[in-house]
């Protein structure tokens, strides 16, 4: 079977929502089991006492990336059909900076806050409430953000094309960087004083 299955009409469109629910359950379970429902565990990455976010995040991204590249190579999946978020240069950077500030204050990101809600974290509920308010505010004040929101459109840009590298070289360097980072994280954890949470 050549993936992606639903865009290729191998699985009917009607299954979309059922699959969404199942994938969501897998997503929520692994996030919670890895400790992403605790804001203080998440924040450990930024203070060096617990690098769980760094490890889970990069392992996950690289596992999926490797899977996609190998399936594409074997002809089991058409990687050119996968959805690529369009790249708008300045909104991506400014949005990321704003999200970083929100991260440092709130201690969650949207996905992990839903996990926190599931196990009864009140701070996660307040954070998710803030998300609604923030998105509502953005939508209402859209005319203020409109020119920024639409600026610097580069289309469905891929990072290795922009750097003038081949996909293989970039993926390889990313894996090497991640391995280096994981060992570095273990090293830093040993130096930093443990925080009880």
């Amino acid at each position: 079977m050549t993936g992606p299955l639903i865009p290729m009409n191998i699985i009917p469109e009607a299954w979309n929502n059922v699959i969404a629910l199942l994938i969501g359950i897998g997503f929520g379970f692994t996030l919670e089991a890895s400790g992403f429902s605790s804001s203080r565990k998440i924040m450990g990455t930024f203070f060096g006492y617990d690098f769980v976010v760094l490890r889970v995040f990069f392992t996950a991204a690289l596992t999926a990336m490797t899977g996609i590249i190998y399936f594409d190579f074997m002809g089991w999946m058409d990687a050119s059909m996968l959805y690529i978020n369009p790249f708008y240069v300045s909104p991506a950077i400014i949005g990321g900076l704003v999200m970083g500030a929100g991260f440092a204050l709130g201690g969650f990101c949207p996905g992990t806050s839903f996990c926190g809600i599931a196990i009864g974290k009140i701070d996660a509920m307040v954070f998710a409430g803030g998300l609604f308010v923030g998105i509502f505010f953005f939508s209402e004040a859209y005319s203020l953000f409109e020119s920024l929101y639409n600026s610097g459109n580069m289309g469905d840009a891929l990072i290795f094309d922009m750097l003038g590298m081949s996909k293989a070289v970039f993926a390889f360097l990313l894996i090497m960087a991640a391995i280096g980072m994981f060992y570095g994280a273990t090293f830093i954890e040993k130096l930093v004083k443990k925080v009880e949470y």
């Binding site: 978020n85 909104p91 991506a92 998300l131 509502f136 840009a157 290795f160």
Partner: peptide, 30 residues
């Protein structure tokens, strides 16, 4: 933090999971 994250995620067209994690898996620039 939630409010800021909400605004930022709309500007960047996705949050840590939608833009950053999924985007990295397909090596998208965004």
């Amino acid at each position: 933090g939630g409010i800021l994250f909400g605004i930022g995620s709309q500007l960047a067209r996705g949050c840590t999971s939608g833009a950053a994690l999924s985007g990295m898996a397909v090596l998208s620039a965004s």
